[in-house]
């Protein structure tokens, strides 16, 4: 179809390949923090909420934007904070080896 769709599909496929490769041998203790870290990244949907907020013109659209904004922001803010809290715990338990 259009050139922009082709570019989008190219980006998608390359990002999928990077995603497959970026996770290597992860120690089991890091599984949950890593899951939480990836969880925060998809909070980028908030960017999509900002875009639709700019074009919304009806009460229904405004209501959907408000709910989506609350959901997406909770994902971003909560996600990064909770990941940091998990890793903080990890560092304390493993503190002697890591740099202070």
């Amino acid at each position: 179809m259009s050139g922009s769709l082709l570019t989008d599909v190219t980006m998608f496929v390359l990002a999928v390949l990077v995603g497959f490769e970026v996770i290597s041998k992860v120690p089991a203790t890091l599984h949950t923090p890593l899951m939480s870290g990836a969880n925060s990244i998809h909070g980028i949907i908030l960017l999509g909420v900002v875009i639709v907020a700019g074009s919304a013109r009806t009460p229904l659209e405004y209501a959907l934007v408000a709910i989506a904004a609350a959901f997406a922001t909770a994902n971003v803010v909560g996600g990064y904070l909770v990941t940091d809290r998990m890793l903080e715990m990890f560092r304390t338990r493993d503190g002697r080896r890591g740099p202070a």
Binding site: D8, M11, V16, F20, V22, G48
Partner: peptide, 22 residues
């Protein structure tokens, strides 16, 4: 893809793939 936003496509695909491996 709906909004034609490359940032969403890249970050979403990254999490989709790395999440599958994880």
């Amino acid at each position: 893809f709906v909004l034609n936003s490359v940032a969403l496509i890249i970050a979403g695909a990254l999490v989709g793939a790395s999440g599958t491996i994880l």
